[in-house]
Structure formats: C-alpha cells, structure tokens
Design a protein around this nucleic acid. Sequence first.
DNA 1: CATCGCCGTGGGAGCGCTCTCACAGAGGAG
DNA 2: CTCCTCTGTGAGAGCGCTCCCACGGCGATG
Lengths: 363, 363
Amino acid sequence: MNLEEVARLAGVSRSTVSRVINEDRRVSDDARQRVLAVIERHNFQPNAAARSLATRRTRILGLQIPGAVSFVFADPYFPSLVQGVTDACNDADYGLMLMMEPVDDQQSAERLYQRVIRGRHLDGIVLSTAIEGDRFIERVANDDLPAVIIGRHDQITSIDVDNLFASRDAVAHLIWHGYERIAHISGPTDSRASKDRFAGYRLALEEAGRDVELDLVAVGDFTERSGYLRMTDLLYSRGRRPDAVFCGSDTMAAGAIRAIRDAGLQLPGDIALIGFDGLQRHAVDFPNLSTVVQPIADLGKTAVQTLIARVLDPSQPVTRTVLPTRLEFKGSCGCVGKTADPRFANHNGVPTGHDAVVGTYAH
Amino acid sequence: MNLEEVARLAGVSRSTVSRVINEDRRVSDDARQRVLAVIERHNFQPNAAARSLATRRTRILGLQIPGAVSFVFADPYFPSLVQGVTDACNDADYGLMLMMEPVDDQQSAERLYQRVIRGRHLDGIVLSTAIEGDRFIERVANDDLPAVIIGRHDQITSIDVDNLFASRDAVAHLIWHGYERIAHISGPTDSRASKDRFAGYRLALEEAGRDVELDLVAVGDFTERSGYLRMTDLLYSRGRRPDAVFCGSDTMAAGAIRAIRDAGLQLPGDIALIGFDGLQRHAVDFPNLSTVVQPIADLGKTAVQTLIARVLDPSQPVTRTVLPTRLEFKGSCGCVGKTADPRFANHNGVPTGHDAVVGTYAH
DNA sequence: CATCGCCGTGGGAGCGCTCTCACAGAGGAG
DNA sequence: CTCCTCTGTGAGAGCGCTCCCACGGCGATG
C-alpha cells in the first residue's frame, strides 16, 4: 500500500493524497474526505524512508549518552533526563535514537558515529554530557549536525542550570546557619558541572571571608558508594570533623548520610548536609534531605524543543539557556521545613535577586 | 556527495561503487582501490534513507519500554537491559530507537505506534515487558513486524529465564536450611515474571509437603519502598513473624533488609532472605545479599541477536529461549559464602539436574 | 466581454540508493 | 575457429515520497 494506490482508490492523484497527509489546505473538502476514508480503511501510513529521502529530514533525533553504565545509570539522573527527552520527542512526533557509545572500543564507536551521524540518520542530536574534551562532542561540534548540549559548552547551543550560583547559594545558606567547617564532596573533576559546583562552594566561602581548606574537600564520582567512602574519609581520616557538607549530587549525599549514620552521628545535629539534584528516588529513602533541585526532566524537554527549532531553522545562532534551580529545605541543612534565611525570603527556595541569570542568551 | 559523484571521481559507474560499499567481491582490485580512495578522501557515507527505500530495511531496531518511569527506572533492572541491548546493536551495526510509551495519553501512544511501527521505521522490535494484556504488545504480536519479547509469551519469540524453577530452587534452599515460616514479597500481579516466581515459591513449599499461607505472602511493586513497607507488614501486622523471606526482586529485597534492620533484627540470624536479579548496584550496599542471579544484560543481548536473525529470515518459527540463572550464596540465606546444600553440589549455585531446561525451543 | 488572479488538481522530476539485466572481453572446450 | 562460460562493468528501472510547475475552471475586475 502506497500513495499511488490510495490515490487510485480515492479517485484522485498522488499529489492530492500527499497534500491531505501533509495537511496542505489547498484540497477540496470532497477530495479530502474521500482520501481520509481510504487511508482510514486501509490503515495507511506513509513510508518513512521514502519521506526522508524526499524531504531530507528523518524526524529522528539522537540522544548521546556516555558509554559506561556504571557511571550512567548508577545515578537516577539519566533516567529522569531520558524521560524528559522521550516525552518531548513524543509530543513533537519525533523518534529518538539512543547512542550509547561503546566503551573501550574506539573502532566500534567510530562505526556507530559514521553510520548514524554521517549516514544522515538523524535530524539532530542531544548531547547529555559536558565532559571536557569528550571526543564525540567535539566531533559533533565540528560536523554540521544540529546539536544541543545539556551542560555548559562554548560552541554548542546549551541548556543548563547555573551550577555555580546554585551551589554558592546552597553553601551560603549553610554559612547563614552558622556552620564553621563546611566540607564539599564533588563529582568527577572532568565534569563541567562538578567544577562549577565546586566553584560555587568556593565563591560562597570567599564571600564570607573564608578560604577553601583542602582538608574539607573530597572528590567522588557521583556514585552512592563514593559518597559513603568520601564521607567516611572526611569523618575519620582528615583533620577536625566538618559540621556541614555540601554534596555534588543527591546520590553521593545518600551515601554520605549512610556514612554519617554508621558513624553514630545525628543529621543535622552533628553534621548538616545539602545535596544537589532533587531526585525523587532519594526523597523516598531520605525524606529530610535538603537539596538544590534542578529540573532534570525539563532540561531534557527544553533541549529537545530547542533542538527541533534548530533543525527547522539551522541558521539560528548558538544560544545558552539557563533553567532555574530551587533550594529545598527539608531538614538536613538545619532548617525544619522552611527557612528564615533572608536570602530566600521572597520565594520558597528561590534566592532573591538571581532571576536575571535564568533565561536564554545569544552566545 | 553521493554515489554518483564518488563514481565520477573514481572513474567508474555508480553500480561499481555500490558493489564496493556492499562488499560484493565481483569488483576488480584496481577499481576497488580507486573507489575506496575516493570514499576515504571525502569521508563518504551512503545516505541511510535512500538505502532503506531501496532495500526495504532500515537497520534500526526498536526497544519498547513501558511508560511509567517511576516503575521503570526505579529498578536498575532496566538500565542493565538497555546496556545489553545497545551493546548488541552496536556490535551488529544496528541503530536503536527507544519507544517509551507515553503514560496516560492514549492518543499520543497511538501516534507513536502509527508513525514508527506502521511507517516502517524499524526492522524489528524488542519488547521489554511481559505485562499481561499489554495493548502495545498484543498489537505488535498481530502486526507483521519481527519482534522478540523478554519474558514469557505464547505468540512471540521470547527470551527468558526460568522464573518458576529458579524460584523453586531458591525457596527449596531456604527449606533445606530449616526455616519454617518462609514469606514471599512478590512483584506486581500483572507481571508474568511475578506470577512465575510466586508459582515457584508455592511449588517448593508443596514439594516439601507444606501449603502457602496467606499470612506470609505480600504483594509489592518492585520498588525499594514497597519492599520496605511489605516487610514491615510481615513483621508487625500479620500472624507470627516469618523466619525467612524470598523477595521477587533485589530492589525490594533492599527495602526489606532496611525494614529488618530498622526492626532491630539480625540477618540472617532472625530472618533469612533471598532476592532475585543479582543487580550490581545492590551488591555494593548489601554485600551479603543471597540472590538468584539472572543474566539481565545477556537477556537484552540475546534478544537483539535473535531478533536480527528473524529480521534476516522472517520465516523462522516462534521460539522460546531460556537463559540460565544461578543462586548466589552470600550469607543472607544462612550460608556463609558457600553452601552444603546437596542440590547445588555440582556447580556453584547452579542446581543439579536442571540444565535441560535451559536452551532454545520451538514453540 | 476579455483579462486577470486564484484555487484545486495532476504530471513529472528527483531524492540516493540497490538490483536486475545486458554486454564486452578473456579464456577454455569442442 | 566457433561456441560457451565466466568475470567485471554499466545502464536503467524502481523504491515511495515531496515539490515544482502547468493547466483548466471559476468569480472578480475593468
């Protein structure tokens, strides 16, 4: 069953059927009805390949995800992102191709890239990781495939949260609470987000006239296990114990909380804690975890919408979109439910005076 | 850049270039070298849409995943599956399209189905959930798209583990340990796997001359939270406490373990426990969790390989492939590292005499 | 009443590939 | 020397769609 046959059955030409399918309004009601009836009766659907060939559009977007599962799916961050991305794709009637780069197999990764990207299988691609110097990303940036990256990047249109200021605010809040020795457990150092969060931590300390103490900084890898191990380090193997911790992710925060409990310490009595992400999963296990909530699914959704706009108009300039974060006071930071911190007086968890940072900017 | 142009530059015809690309050996070495040189120099990759149109193959497989994230990605089961599937796709040079059904939006789900499945976007599809009566699955079964399902199904070629016997063995092992009141926390009742695991639980009890006691059976939903809640139920709100539990998934087992600890009870001293899945993630948090290890990534890999075989030869009969499981004795069942249970004497964790169940069968 | 859009329609070319078929030339068999 | 096979090659059709262009019929315009 193809256009030609539908046309024959409806007593019109191929062109008219094509117009009906593509909602071209220059078709008489009469013809339209007949065509729709035939399409309905035979459950006709135009062939995607033929369409792609003629339009040079596939209506498929790619989602690049770094290869190592252990890293990727250990953290519920990616599932949320995938959800946002698929939702947006479904809404826009685009298909989604998953591109998980093979780990430790450069040749296979190369084949994947060649076949999918250069074979023009995709209209555009969402890049999910701002890992600095990532081969794949740099390559896409130099190819002419429309791309949007989630995270910070200079050459590619990006969707991000303001990791630096969000972290600054979180740590400033801990300072407001009066904690003296505020530690930081960061994510892997090749991640842009990790760097920015650490920078925010440092900024808050500096604004309060303090310095970063090496004693109080530990580097994890976003896994719960690393959160547990680094927290244990901070408790036992460093100088004096911290009285508060800012964790680079909720998942690491979960590990840290276990370590704190295993040490027989109270949260936030002995040690206060703020996480980052606002993941639903952890809300179940640790309902009192204060955290910087970032709109993960929205990042994915916005990325897709922005990408589609670029696909339809490739001449669009490179932009940077920043989505808002919000500090959620659940108790582990020292607040009980709400905070009296004047910095957050206007909106619940949204710091006063930062709104200007959020939005879309030309690069 | 297209075939025609490559042909011109290499001084041959379009046909010859096509032969070189498709590794047809009836090309002179001389011509092949010239063509390859041009392809290399211009980094040429044949257009996927044109190829699809001509061959009526897309080299894209679909992966259907049920819509509700909460359900899907709460459990690390799916990430492992996705990993296996993408690996196999990469190895075979197939692309993978993710089909997450929109939840609560029948219309959008319908559009997705029409566009992707009926638009012949895919060569075949891997179905990831044997939920009974699932609309999507039944529909695919009646369409002519090659499909493979992970789990049990009568009309579709399936890749599965023997949930019934694996569970029977696990519970028989608990019985061998001498536990008297063995409880079961099952997954959702519309899941085929849950049913089979419960059936295995019952079978083991019956083989030991016991009956299922309603007091000892609780229904969860595969989430950690439900494991915690159901275990708490079993501890406080039922009749006499169980002295062992067989959990329908490791994730629920993790919740159950927390409930047991929160109740101040010892594992396995007061209550023994066996899980199901063998997920790496839980091995970190609960290193002594005894569990039925199923090869999740292999299920995905095998599904893809089987599917590709069906794509290449659609006349293949419907088959059922059963992959082996293995009981891992980590301590929580009462064993310490190894077991003396004679049923598992031959292989570590692989029950004696079951090997015949594993394999591929015509339906 | 002739002229001019405008609307609905159909025909044809073309998207970039594969695949069948025809054919030239080399080499072996009769 | 003729006939036949076999190998490498090219031409052409066709996959199913979109999109441009041409054309007939119609009402509005001068």
